[in-house]
Design a binder for these strands. Structure first.
Lengths: 153, 153
DNA sequence: TAATAAATTTAGGTAAACCTAACATATAAG
DNA sequence: CTTATATGTTAGGTTTACCTAAATTTATTA
């Protein structure tokens, strides 16, 4: 699997934004990255230089940025896990905006093993033949604190 | 609910360690906190001064530390959520050590709403009359990628 | 009780990630 | 094609959380 240990959480966050912008426009520019991350342009420039050192972006002063192959692979796997987390929180009934924010926070701080188990768990509950009923039961429990069906086993 | 927004993640982490040590020995001292958090004593002293400013600990130079009421209430709720997260990861099949580390990382970075939903979800799956069977099915799915029972609904 | 050892604090320094203000380059408009 | 505006970069500064080395205080023990 990918070695992400060497990247800081912040680097990963920038990488994802660059990936998103690149998907939209074919490249990413400083102002847009800054807006997306709620920071000022000089912070972006600084980070781009660091990302380039790590061979994650192709960066030319005063020109836009694109991801290297390595950067893209990493960004994709980050985004995939971000999605997993977000969907999981939404299933739990967390508000969409908050689910997204929390996914964003968490995706950079947990072990790969946990990511994998969570992904499998989400697939399990989403693809389960019992999925719709099961979810209804949870929603009911969530509101009332009681189990809808009492039959055991 | 508690306003945690004003505390940094690091402050919360120290608070929890102090809480643990206090439960064990009645108070916490600098060396033990430093060991538990894998930092050097001067970092602890610095943080204790900060925690005192926030009225979370009773701190006297060269003497030990104890939590204030405010600090204790906060530490308790942090620890409770830590436990919830850890148990959840363990249910998913994550290794105990990793589950604990990840719980520790996450507990300081997500919204209260998410914490609450997760807690309810954990109660739901743990107290469910179907709990043991349900878990078996997940473990089976986790290993084989297939659902054990095929009956729908 | 004086001397040594252990624990704690202070002083001063580093790295990451941010900022503002000033400067440089690129783009667009006259 | 030159100037005005956009965008991007550099220089230098801040904050947080860490560090080492050098005091200082407390505890131990000879």
């Amino acid at each position: 699997m990918l070695k992400m240990e060497e990247l800081s959480k912040t680097e990963e966050t920038y990488l994802e934004r660059i990936y998103d912008l690149t998907k939209e426009k074919g490249y990413a520019n400083v102002v847009d990255i800054a807006m997306a991350l709620n920071v000022k342009p000089p912070s972006v420039t600084e980070m781009l230089q660091k990302l380039e050192k790590h061979n994650l972006v192709n960066y030319e002063r005063y020109r836009g940025v694109t991801l290297t192959k390595k950067g893209e692979v990493l960004a994709k796997s980050l985004e995939q896990f971000h999605g997993t987390l977000r969907r999981f929180f939404e299933i739990l009934g967390v508000d969409k905006t908050i689910a997204d924010e929390d996914a964003c926070e968490i995706e950079h701080s947990i072990h790969h093993e946990t990511i994998e188990k969570l992904t499998k768990f989400l697939k399990f509950i989403q693809e389960s033949p019992k999925h719709p009923k099961w979810l209804e039961h949870f929603r009911y429990y969530e509101k009332t604190g009681r189990y809808r069906c009492r039959e055991t086993e």
